[in-house]
Nucleic acid binder design. Structure first.
Lengths: 185, 185
DNA sequence: CGGTTTGATAGACAGTGTCTACAAGGTGAA
DNA sequence: TTCACCTTGTAGACACTGTCTATCAAACCG
């Protein structure tokens, strides 16, 4: 296994175990057992390394999508929504990294390729359901953007510290149920 | 005007003009014309200062709410949703800071007080609409959490770099229209 | 007046990303 | 073989960062 892959592995482990704040170039180098400057032989900088890590996150998300069980378009879309939320809750640090523009390189080729594929897949699920009589006439990508944003906000606010003030803390599942009910009726 | 207030002002200006990454203790001190250690005489650390800045953001958000024009519950709720999105798009750096748990102190008393007030206000708007025949029987705070998350995701994803892949970039207003249509019918 | 508190300063420290000079080892051509 | 070259890793330096501490000046107050 190449040193480059080993660095991404180490960084991903560090990310999962210690959080976004612990993923420093020097920390990764130490965890990988190399000198503090070694990672720069394989990545142009911290953002490039973290982009490679985030790309893994998007890849796993895409795999969750393509691995979805068969079913009606409606069932598949609902399962995908649950999958998005599940992924975020199961990998909070990775999820945070994936949307931290200051830590990754937004123009990274691999990253944009995979993240676009995730959105396209989700939009296709929406389009398939639309072939029924659900919201006909609306651009499926616009519909997908809106629904995705709702899921994303749910995940983000939950990870941020509960979905509401201190006086009330619904489970993410119950809030997702309300969201899906609003969109899918 | 006290030195403490002046520091918050300076930090808020720096935040708006240079972004979250520029809001360092030393940068704020330099912009305020004091030595690099001076801010620590008024705040226990960086997180405390940034919490005070973020509290201003929540306060402005609350003011936008209480300043809402009269109208039917439905009109007021829709206006509040637009207001939330408008605020985020008009103050992207402030909006980012307000939800960056690693930069602020989540237990800051003022911060939690004002942010909870924002949510309570929003939940009250939802509750008022519910007194009609909209989603009767559902906890208004659960409904508010779900709707708020949708707005939040919209704002977050838009600021993150468009609501979708590179191939498709809807305006936040059009996506919000879809969201409001889903929830409010 | 004297003592105390408050506010500000400058220096130090560890930690960060990044750059540069250098060394070790492999590769391939003369 | 021998030599040049490239890759990979190392160690040191630099400018940053947040935070701590010692010092100092001014204001306040009994």
């Amino acid at each position: 296994m190449g040193a480059r892959t080993r660095l991404i592995d180490t960084a991903a482990n560090l990310l999962a175990e210690e959080g976004v704040g612990a993923v420093t170039l020097r920390g990764i180098a130490k965890a990988a057992g190399v000198s503090h400057g070694a990672p720069l032989r394989h990545f142009s900088g911290r953002a490039a390394l973290l982009s490679a890590v985030a790309t893994r996150g998007y890849t796993e998300l895409l795999d969750r999508g393509t691995g979805l069980p068969d079913g009606t378009p409606r069932e598949r879309l609902i399962a995908a929504c649950h999958g998005y939320l599940d992924f975020a809750l199961a990998n909070p640090a990775m999820f945070e990294l994936m949307f931290r523009r200051d830590l990754i390189d937004p123009d990274d080729a691999e990253l944009t390729r995979v993240s676009s594929a995730v959105f396209d897949f989700f939009a296709a699920l929406v389009g398939a359901l639309q072939d029924g009589d659900w919201h006909p006439g609306t651009d499926p990508r616009l519909l997908a953007s809106s629904l995705w944003a709702s899921l994303h906000g749910l995940a983000q606010l939950w990870l941020w510290g509960g979905l509401a003030g201190a006086s009330f803390a619904p489970s993410p599942e119950s809030a997702l149920a309300v969201t899906l009910d609003a969109y899918l009726g």
